[in-house]
Write a protein that binds this DNA or RNA. Structure first.
Length: 163
DNA sequence: AATGACAGTCCCA
DNA sequence: TGGGACTGTCATT
C-alpha cells in the first residue's frame, strides 16, 4: 500500500475544517482548531484527491446549512470490524433524523453492546459526514459528543432536531 | 495480563 | 433515584 496522505483545509462560516485523504478516499475530518495549524499539502496532489476534496467541501457546507448533500466522497476510515459496522449504520441515517445508541446496537446485531456503540461513535474519524451527531441517548436525551457538546447542538439545530 | 474509564441501557429495589 | 451487569476499545499498570 502506497500510504499517501494529504491534508486539505475547508473554510466554512464555523471555521477551518481539515480533511485527511489517502489513495482510498477520505479517512478523517477535523473540527476547526483553536490553535490552527497549517494544512500539509504535498507538491503533487493526486487528481482524484482534488476531485474528492471538492465533493467533501460541498457536502460539509451543505450539512452545516441543514441540507442533505448531493454527493459524498469515498469514505475509507480506519477502524476495527466493530467500529466499521457502527459507522456504516450511522451513514444510513438521513439528515434531520436520529437514532438511539441502542437502536444502532440492534442494527448491527449486537443488541447488548450499547455502551460499546458509544465508544465507536466517539472514535468516528469523520464527524459530520458520518453523522455521529444524530445518535441520541434513550428518551431523546442529548448524550455526549467527542467534538464537544456545542458542536453536537449546533449540528442538530441545523438539521431541525429538537432534544 | 489485568484493571479502569467511557458519547448507554435495562432491571430491580 | 441508585447500583449492577453487559460490551468493545484504549490507556495505564
Amino acid at each position: 500500500m502506497n500510504a499517501i496522505t494529504v491534508i486539505l483545509p475547508i473554510q466554512t462560516a464555523d471555521g477551518e475544517f481539515l480533511a485527511h485523504y489517502t489513495e482510498r478516499g477520505l479517512i478523517g475530518l477535523d473540527f476547526p482548531r483553536t490553535a490552527s495549524k497549517p494544512a500539509k499539502e504535498p507538491e503533487t496532489i493526486p487528481t482524484a484527491v482534488r476531485a474528492w476534496h471538492r465533493i467533501t467541501a460541498s457536502a460539509l457546507k451543505s450539512i452545516l446549512a441543514g441540507k442533505e448533500p448531493a454527493k459524498l466522497p469515498p469514505l475509507a476510515p480506519n477502524g476495527t470490524a466493530f467500529q466499521i459496522s457502527v459507522w456504516a449504520a450511522l451513514r444510513a441515517i438521513s439528515l434531520g433524523n436520529t437514532r438511539s445508541y441502542g437502536e444502532i446496537a440492534e442494527a448491527i446485531g449486537r443488541p447488548k453492546a450499547v455502551r460499546a456503540v458509544g465508544g465507536a461513535c466517539g472514535a468516528n474519524p469523520i464527524p459530520v459526514l458520518v453523522p455521529c451527531h444524530r445518535i441520541l441517548a434513550a428518551g431523546k436525551r442529548i448524550g455526549g459528543f467527542g467534538g464537544g457538546m456545542a458542536w453536537k447542538r449546533r449540528l442538530l439545530a441545523a438539521e431541525g432536531v429538537r432534544v
